[in-house]
Design a protein around this nucleic acid. Sequence first.
DNA 1: GTATCGTTGGAACGAACGTTCGACTCAGTA
DNA 2: TACTGAGTCGAACGTTCGTTCCAACGATAC
Lengths: 242, 242
Amino acid sequence: MELFVGSARFRRPSAPQARTSGHSSPERQASAEKLDHILRHAARVFSEKGYAGASMRDISRSSGVPLAGLYYYCESKQKLLYLIQIFAFRSILERLEQRLAGVAEPVEQLRVFVQNHLEYFLSHPVEMKVLTHEEKALTEPLRRDVAEIKRRYYSLAREIFEELRRSEGIRGIQPRIAVLSLFGMMNWIYTWYNPRVDPSADRLAEIMTGIFLVGVCNGHGHRIGWRESSRGNAQAADRLAG
Amino acid sequence: MELFVGSARFRRPSAPQARTSGHSSPERQASAEKLDHILRHAARVFSEKGYAGASMRDISRSSGVPLAGLYYYCESKQKLLYLIQIFAFRSILERLEQRLAGVAEPVEQLRVFVQNHLEYFLSHPVEMKVLTHEEKALTEPLRRDVAEIKRRYYSLAREIFEELRRSEGIRGIQPRIAVLSLFGMMNWIYTWYNPRVDPSADRLAEIMTGIFLVGVCNGHGHRIGWRESSRGNAQAADRLAG
DNA sequence: GTATCGTTGGAACGAACGTTCGACTCAGTA
DNA sequence: TACTGAGTCGAACGTTCGTTCCAACGATAC
């Protein structure tokens, strides 16, 4: 988790980063790393007990940071949840925009979207569970911020699908339903995924992209079919099961 | 909600149903209806605030039953959640078994399964949200019971799919992943469904069955295709687009 | 040495939690 | 008439909650 980039912006005014003169960089970094440490443990506790069921004392125990220390680095329990959600979402969006940069074809864009989502989902299961499971736990001032990012993320997926719809001549299925069904497949994973039994993120992304593309497009349009691999690497070809 | 059939079995030993002699039927029924009343409101409160975030006082306020009264009809907060989940699951399974009785064809069985699931889901949104969102909230003695029913429900879906797989000659997709993806599509609905904007349960069931069947089968097997209309009636035959 | 700083430990705050208690009503029985 | 027991409910139980406060700490700066 590389949360601490920019995290100082979110701390209370009285927190250490307010000190702008004198020694700065090493302390600032140590301080930011400690907030990261707290957020990591908080995310784990929230994911295990739920936001309401988790206490600040639980987070204190889990992280080793004393109760008063938690409030020194983050002003409230709400803000902890807020930071976890905001940083996770930003991280996903940032990676996604990078990966999407050179991709023009809608079908490929969708693959990249699913790939990115699942890769983040499975490599940060704790944060993602908090993100998807604790949607309503924030109260209004903070909630709006997270909802705004989420809306942007959904819009991006929907735009990709609309483009795909045009280019493939798909008809008869509402984009809203199609995209939300796709999100359902992906976001439900946290309830069942078992790394010892289930396919890797890459493979899972291929499978779900396949189900979605064929399911949504083949009913009323071209045959898109299955293809394997995505990332442009060398072994791409031999993963083709046919 | 028709919960109170058999609900007496779940009450504490000292509860009113222990009285077996003298006057019986009207009081018993009134008592059971009151438990139903409480469960209905409890389900709503749990679905709005989450199990951990909801207090017995919230449920008392919502239902109009005084705090101590709640404990007269149900021994604990845990048991409230337990009863809500158990009754909802039983209800779904019961209807499903009825509807599945006369259906032999795997494709049609899958349609019935999805239809049944979504119909219950959308007509009992509160209970279903509690069922899907509060999976981990129960502690061990009660949790096992609910998990057992859930396992049976999942197994049923999986058996239908395995049968479908054989009859349609589908290969290359793991049944576990396929079925859990389908559950993802369906169970995610509670996060976005808006009855003023979105299709009815019937229509939604058709759409999702379509995405799933085409997506999972057409990649590696026969073409099944889309179809319109639903409920098990005379037009059943022409629904098979084949 | 001393003043200053970020940080800690621990006690404490009022509020809210799940649950229990006991006094009460009131219809049915003997 | 006296008694019984299901049903009701306000008040309180002990605990835990999020949060605050503050005296003390070790390190750095003058």
